[in-house]
Simulated scan of single mutants.
Amino acid sequence: MFINICTILGLLTNVEGLPEVACNRLKIGESWYDRQPLWANIGRPYNLNVHRSSNSLFFSYSLPETYSDTDFQLAFFNIDSKDSQTIAGIRGGCSVAIDQLNDEIYLGGSDGIYKYNMLTKLADFYKEKGKNVWSLFYKKNLFYISYPDQKLHIEYDGKFATVKEFEGFEIDHFHVSSMNTIYFANKTGLYRYDNDKMLAKPVNELVTVRQIVEDNEGDIYVVTNFGVFADGKFEGLKKILDMKNIYGLAFDRDNNFIYSDEKNIVKLVYSLVGCDKKSLHW
């Protein structure tokens, strides 16, 4: 069977008349990504954090009121093997921090801080018995934010103390970048803290921050109610994803985006093909 060149050109010309196929890709900045669902039909996953040596995603999610008197639950999902597990024994489990260098996984709930053992798959109590832990963060030291006073604490010499420089602030999210830039957020917006001048400088006072996260290359991303912003080293805060229903963001061992919306956790893999007609490859 033979098809002449005129027929082929005719087929290509009529492509625009074909019905459009739903595109399952997402554009972040100038790049396109294929969506690969990891976990579906789960209640609003927050606080995404990847343990890189095992490539396991740790996160919290909300429970229906009918389940129990606990409103949050912690879980993990291994991105390679697809194994998953809810983490028992942490009441109101809602926060995650990982010391990647020493392979320590810290989890927080309404009754203190726990350490998770990847071999036994159990969480053992660590410190701050009876303290309601809103958020955890690790950078050389372990930090936590207490609830409902929203105060920042740091572990030093085996004990926790409030961080003096932030005693005058309520803090919902806290992050120290690999370049030692300090970010924090509360109900009034997103801030950078100038450690030399001991002064908080507003970055954006219109957004509600849901997570501040750093990728494997040291770039900062801020998840907000208006979408995802990247804080470039020279350009400042710039929106890269206009998606209002995103609640968490993390990066796997290979620096792939992983995000969550109201009910799903999705991995993004870079694609050479986009969803607009100009990106079609023949």
Rank of each mutant, 00 (worst) to 15 (best):
M1F: 04
M1C: 02
N4D: 15
C6F: 10
C6V: 07
T7G: 02
N14K: 10
E16V: 14
L18G: 02
P19E: 09
P19V: 07
C23K: 09
N24S: 08
L26N: 06
L26A: 08
I28W: 09
Q36P: 00
Q36D: 10
W39N: 02
W39A: 03
A40Y: 04
N41F: 07
R44G: 00
R52C: 00
N55H: 02
S60A: 12
S60Q: 08
L63Q: 15
P64M: 08
T66Y: 14
T70G: 14
L74Q: 05
A75L: 14
F77Q: 05
I79R: 08
D80Q: 09
D83M: 11
G89I: 06
G93E: 00
S95N: 00
A97H: 01
D99A: 00
D99Y: 01
G109E: 00
I113D: 12
I113P: 09
L119G: 05
A123E: 14
D124F: 14
F125M: 13
F125S: 14
F125T: 11
Y126M: 10
Y126A: 12
G130N: 15
N132T: 15
V133E: 06
V133P: 05
S135Y: 09
F137I: 05
F137V: 05
K140V: 07
K140G: 01
N141C: 04
L142A: 00
L142H: 02
F143I: 08
I154E: 12
E155G: 03
D157Y: 07
D157A: 05
D157H: 06
K159H: 06
K159I: 08
F160E: 02
F160M: 03
A161M: 13
K164Q: 14
G168N: 13
I171R: 14
V176H: 09
S178R: 14
S178G: 10
I182Q: 01
N186W: 02
K187W: 11
K187H: 12
G189N: 10
L190Y: 04
Y191V: 04
R192L: 15
Y193R: 10
Y193P: 04
D196E: 08
M198D: 09
M198N: 12
L199E: 13
A200E: 09
V203Y: 13
L206Q: 13
V207W: 07
T208G: 05
V213I: 14
N216Q: 13
G218S: 13
V222W: 09
G227L: 01
G227V: 02
A230F: 05
G232W: 01
K233S: 06
F234G: 02
F234W: 10
L237R: 10
K239V: 05
K239N: 08
I240P: 04
D242W: 08
M243P: 01
G248M: 11
A250Q: 01
D252A: 03
E262N: 09
K263C: 06
N264S: 13
V266R: 02
V266Y: 03
K267V: 05
K267G: 04
K267M: 09
Y270G: 11
G274T: 04
K277R: 12
S279A: 08
H281P: 03
H281N: 13
W282T: 07
